[in-house]
């Protein structure tokens, strides 16, 4: 297992070589990210403003809501992360115009690494560091968890029934997260794909 600490993050196969990989991992890049926090007593107005402008209603339960090109990831009561495409236009300014005085918007672009995880053993890998129940009876497509993975704060959500998960982690913690992920996935075999641009 000591070797697992020295896996570098680069496209290719690591761990068990035989058979199909238990975990397939891909970094999603080129997305804009902002935190949106409703001002005191203004959460309903903030939700309404986003619904009218983006066609996505920032969720009031731990779920993700996607509009045409913006997704809102629940982050706490009256608190969301907005994900959108990178553009020459300021993401923060675009959101700020919509939320006005109902919410505070802060650009977080570049602060996080976004990973997509799939494969037949993805749930077994996550179970080694995520303490919540990811069985479909408890966690389904569209559900979000703000929790910890290997003691690091992450946002985790499910994007398909296969299942496929997305994991958002603070960029400077990625190295630490990767050591845990590589060590956890090694026994099942892990295929790291080349990074791909983010889509909703």
């Amino acid at each position: 297992m000591a070797d697992a600490l020295h896996f570098t993050y680069s496209p290719g196969r690591l761990g068990r070589r035989e058979g199909a990989p238990g975990l397939v991992l891909q970094e999603l890049t080129q997305f804009a990210l902002a935190s949106v926090i409703a001002r005191k007593g203004q959460a309903a107005q903030a939700v309404g403003a986003a619904q009218r402008a983006f066609g996505a209603s920032p969720p009031t339960t731990p779920t993700i809501a996607a509009g045409s090109d913006i997704a809102f990831v629940w982050s706490g009561p009256g608190h969301w992360l907005a994900l959108g495409p990178q553009s020459t236009e300021s993401f923060e300014a675009r959101l700020g115009t919509v939320f006005g005085t109902h919410a505070s918007v802060f650009d977080q672009s570049g602060s996080r690494v976004l990973l997509e995880l799939r494969g037949p053993r993805v749930r077994d890998v996550l179970a080694k560091g995520v303490s919540i129940d990811l069985h479909p009876r408890a966690f389904r497509t569209g559900d979000v968890a703000v929790t910890t993975a290997s003691h690091l704060a992450v946002h985790l959500w499910q994007v398909a029934d296969e299942p496929v998960y997305r994991l958002l982690v603070v960029r400077t913690w990625f190295d630490s997260l990767w050591r845990w992920l590589a060590a956890s996935a090694a026994e099942y075999g892990c295929e790291v794909m080349a990074p791909t641009p983010y889509t909703l």
């Binding site: 731990p62 706490g76 303490s131 919540i132 703000v146 910890t148």
Partner: peptide, 10 residues
Amino acid sequence: PHCGPRTHEE
């Protein structure tokens, strides 16, 4: 009440 059952370590 917001996130569901979680370990006390959080």
